[in-house]
Amino acid sequence: MVLRKRYPRYDAFLDTRNCSSRTNLDLTLEMRMGFRPINPAGGANTGTYNDYGSSSGTPRQIVKWTAAEWNAWKASFCSSAQAYWDAKFWIDNRQGAFALKVGKDVFIPNGYCRFKLIGSDASAGFHHHIIDVVRLAPSENWFGSHSTLYDSKDTNLVPKAYDSKGKPILQRAHVHEVGHLLGLGHVAIGQRGCPVTGDTNASPCYGTSDQDKKSVMGGGMRLDTIHGTAWLGAFNDFVAAQPQSPIYAPAPAKKRAPQVLMRRAYPRTVAEFEAGTLVTKLLPGR
């Protein structure tokens, strides 16, 4: 069974075809990004482009994209961002949904969270997001990007913050931006200096503690279970849309809210499910 649900930011697929006593269902978020190259004005090989694409932004030196560089950058962006977000989370299926029979036994799979990033030129096809991209000159080491304007060096690992000991906290900006495209906000929203309502771009929103600053939605590269929220939301939507299973329908008292895990949890038997056991190691014979 393959289910599909469309969201504005991505499409979600729930695939039970490979499910077994050892293999979970795949829950894949597929994001299509359309990229537009920004080149120097007038067909020149070099020129300038202002930070944020704003007339008041600082001009930065840019270089005309070649076809080879453009294609290589798109491929690098997509492969590295996909690798960062793919296969990092599992959904603990505490609803008992999507049960399957293996011989005489019934198993309840968890969700294996996959991420597929498909990038192409914005000029053709359907895209969830359209992004302009400038190619910075070699002399430039920074550009004022925003959610729909990236630069060619956004895939580089660079300091984005400093910890309490003055050590740099490094981040590849594009994985942070893809986090936003998955619907994630900054790490410290709701904390002091970063109100939930209003502009959540203030400096405190990126974290004031070392712990928060090192989050991918701060200035670092660390993933936490909160970052699996998009998969969790999709899983809950799929469960809500499912008719009652003829294989296994747990009593309401046995159901709990699904949770994001950052370690693999294998499919459970009904007994394991009802006992609330998390199977993180496969027993012999399973």
Partner: peptide
């Protein structure tokens, strides 16, 4: 500790005893 970003893009006297400093960062 928040100095990472695009450097200083502007320093402007707001009065004889105050200055406004613009520090570009990602998205802001």
């Amino acid at each position: 500790p928040d100095r990472a970003g695009g450097g200083i893009s502007e320093i402007k006297a707001a009065s004889s005893t105050s200055y406004e400093v613009a520090l570009p960062k990602e998205g802001r």
